[in-house]
Amino acid sequence: MSVIVTDSGFGPDIAANWTELAPDTPPEALPEIARKAQAIRIAFPGFADGRGFTLAASLRRAGFAGRLRAAGHVLADQYAMARRAGFDEVEISDALAARQPEAQWRARADWQAHDYRAGLRRRAG
């Protein structure tokens, strides 16, 4: 079982036609994936592997407007980064959700505040 984290806190999973992406997906493949996929789930095998953040930003840049999820070992402390990089939500295990309860994730629901880059860019990432 897993827990889905959004700005409103913990929730259950929803059914979707997921395209699964590994962190080593080559950037050249992204424009086509962005065109064809309905919903994309990017794997985070470990929280220190930051490739997923750049993949997410690239997919959004390529025009992907569907649901974009970071799934795996993502920390509450990374929630704001995930949202700013273009993810809609994060999927974590029950065990991680027990160790880092909802309040710790909700504390970062204000991810739009205090963002240096917002002033330098045309549209928020």
Partner: peptide, 13 residues
């Protein structure tokens, strides 16, 4: 400094 501070893509290089 402003651009790189808390840059969401680049905290786990």
């Amino acid at each position: 400094r402003q651009w790189s501070t808390d840059h969401p893509e680049f905290q786990f290089l």
